[in-house]
Nucleic acid binder design. Structure first.
Lengths: 127, 127
DNA sequence: TCCATATTTCAATTACTCATGAAGTCTTGA
DNA sequence: TCAAGACTTCATGAGTAATTGAAATATGGA
């Protein structure tokens, strides 16, 4: 991820309404949630909600798909992953202490995403 | 790290000048850099620089100490670590796919900071 | 076709962030 | 104690972001 893209994503994250939104969508997984349901969950007006959803989508942090009358929004894990990766690798140059501070998460990360790999015969991580 | 604190840190990060600042200070390590030198490196006016340094300090991302006439600023690795940890753990609930996206960093993280992770199947896909 | 539901867009307003330059504080050395 | 250096703070103005409510755009069903 490039600096400019990371900056856009950080700006998207730097807002309470949007952070709540992302958190909710992360919890809901791939299926996501219809805009109306999100609005009910968080108590936002339709236009306010639409505004923030749009910001998050522009930033590559969420995705949308239309299903009949509803528009379903879901978190894009790669988007947030990219931001984290940018901060960790590029901005901090993998500074050991930064890493140590989120090592709990990082460790689970490795165990979750890397451990179950049986061999490397062309097999990639299965996300 | 709590949501409110994470939000403040994200707001601090969501600015090009401050991201550059943090990156520079990360590179300079514990010793840090005097405000004047930073200003020369990045070409900011004193008041502009002071404004952004203050934002970063309020957010817990950098620290300052006075040494004679100079004020030295240095990155606080725990601060950024906290934000990353918040995003990874609390916001994403350790979502495997998010984690996979920064697994390269995470993996180095674990290797650098923690006892060895039991994974010798070697060639993981580096994202 | 007409209506109801779901969501987005628009315009206006308010609130906030950032840059600038002048003035102020702190510290050191003459 | 005075002057200079190194920063910070303050006041102002420009630009940007966020909220609101009304109007517009889809979509599906009677």
């Amino acid at each position: 991820m490039e600096r400019q893209q990371a900056l856009i994503a950080l700006q998207a994250l730097a807002n309470a309404a949007r952070l709540d939104l992302l958190r909710l969508l992360m919890a809901k997984g791939k299926a996501g949630l219809a805009a109306g349901e999100i609005g009910q969950c968080l108590g936002h007006s339709p236009s306010r909600l639409s505004f923030h959803l749009n910001q998050l989508e522009q930033a590559g942090l969420i995705q949308s798909r239309r299903d009949s009358r509803n528009v379903f929004y879901s978190a894009d894990p790669a988007g947030l992953g990219g931001v984290l990766s940018y901060l960790l690798n590029d901005c901090c140059m993998d500074h050991p202490e930064v890493i140590a501070c989120c090592a709990g998460a990082a460790r689970r990360a490795v165990q979750v995403s890397l451990d179950p790999v049986p061999d490397e015969s062309g097999g990639m991580a299965a996300p």
